[in-house]
Design a protein around this nucleic acid. Structure first.
Lengths: 145, 145
DNA sequence: GAAGTCACTATCAAAATGATATGAACGAAA
DNA sequence: TTTCGTTCATATCATTTTGATAGTGACTTC
């Protein structure tokens, strides 16, 4: 898809999509957000071919969403942990999940509960300034220059 | 990537990612959210090869995010308009944009302003139940069965 | 010393991508 | 009435990416 020119646009959405805008990467980030860190954990969880997993992990590491950390010297073993940029991607995933629940929600689905209240969380995107749901108020686009 | 088994999981994130989890599709949805509807508008905006655009538009249509609408009988011309499922994907894109602004924000970026107040919107994902930002409170995962 | 674990790499067929050219159905201009 | 321009595509085909399967290296454990 040629990520170079994508990263050059002035559109922040295009920049966000560049590098992580593929299904495997997002699922890896999902699993990492759930606490998985190791190659074989990702591989088994996703049923992904090891060749692809290696590439995706390298890409996410290069993009600064994951970090390789040595957890054993002998034998040499690395695990992949989320960086702060990676952790901050969780809201996007949760929102995709809310969309999936709404429009692809046939059958039984995994539930996401607030650990404290035990109630199912109800993710919404709002504008912190006005407090309004995104999509309920008109947005004005201002391109640079 | 084999979308079939993705759609079969109980994970709403995986279901959301299936079908729209690729960069072009998300950028098409972005442009559609900004008001573009026609083949050539998308093609010029994205610099995408027509073969790919045809496939992506067909996919998004099949997935129920876009709808083909005839706007001229002679010559026969169709445009692509967002369905409600497509419109509801906007918050995800805006949130990706917020992430992109934060972590890929070098140089000048397009701004998204509230049309009424003129202030830059500050997108956040919250849990509508507790009102807390997603990521600030622990989440408990409950898998079905 | 045989078997198991873990994080990969090698190989290679199959599928997707993307650049470029072309088509089909018209309207309008020369 | 031939030609040009517009719009939504499809055809062709080289290149790139994918994904399935098997194997490897560095250990540890039985």
């Amino acid at each position: 898809m040629n990520e170079k020119n994508l990263s050059d646009t002035s559109c922040p959405i295009a920049r966000g999509v560049a590098g992580i805008g593929d299904a495997w990467s997002m699922l890896i980030l999902r699993d990492a957000s759930l606490g998985l860190t190791r190659f074989d954990q990702f591989r088994k969880s996703l049923g992904i071919a090891p060749t692809i997993l290696t590439r995706r992990l390298a890409m996410l590491t290069e993009e600064g969403l994951l970090e390789k950390q040595r957890y054993s010297e002998r034998p040499p073993r690395d695990e992949y942990v989320l960086t702060s940029a990676g952790r901050d991607f969780l809201p996007v995933l949760i929102l995709i999940g809310a969309w999936g629940r709404r429009y692809r929600g046939e059958g039984k689905l995994t539930q996401y509960l607030d650990a404290e209240t035990g109630e199912e969380i109800e993710p919404v995107a709002i504008d912190a300034v006005t407090g309004a749901k995104i999509g309920t108020r008109a947005i004005r686009i201002v391109k640079p220059e």
